[in-house]
């Protein structure tokens, strides 16, 4: 078994992978509707698909906040400390 060849194959079939990926995303949200919920601590524990939404929102927030901070406040040229 050659790991390199397997990876090469995966990269060449990116389109199929993408379709599989979307299918998996849909599947894990659908499954969430049929899960038994025993002890929910917070109100959102009872909302199916909440963590998918929260994950996506967190992702957007992290990207926006960090890119904004980096662009306007914290970014410097690489030789900033060399003198």
């Amino acid at each position: 078994m050659d790991i390199g060849k397997i990876l090469e194959n995966l990269v060449n079939n990116a389109k199929t992978l993408k379709q599989i990926g979307f299918a998996v995303l849909a599947l894990i949200v659908v499954i969430d509707f049929f899960l038994p919920r025993h002890h929910s601590e917070f109100f959102w524990d009872d909302i199916p698909g909440f963590s998918a939404l929260y994950g996506l929102l967190s992702f957007i927030l992290i990207v926006v906040v960090s890119k904004t901070l980096g662009h306007y406040l914290l970014g410097r040229p690489e030789d900033y400390y060399d003198d």
Binding site: G21, V24, D32, S51, L53, G55, L56, F59
Partner: peptide, 13 residues
């Protein structure tokens, strides 16, 4: 399922 949703939807983004 909670963990998979969080992680895979981040991946999609």
């Amino acid at each position: 399922i909670w963990a998979l949703q969080i992680l895979l939807f981040t991946g999609m983004g």
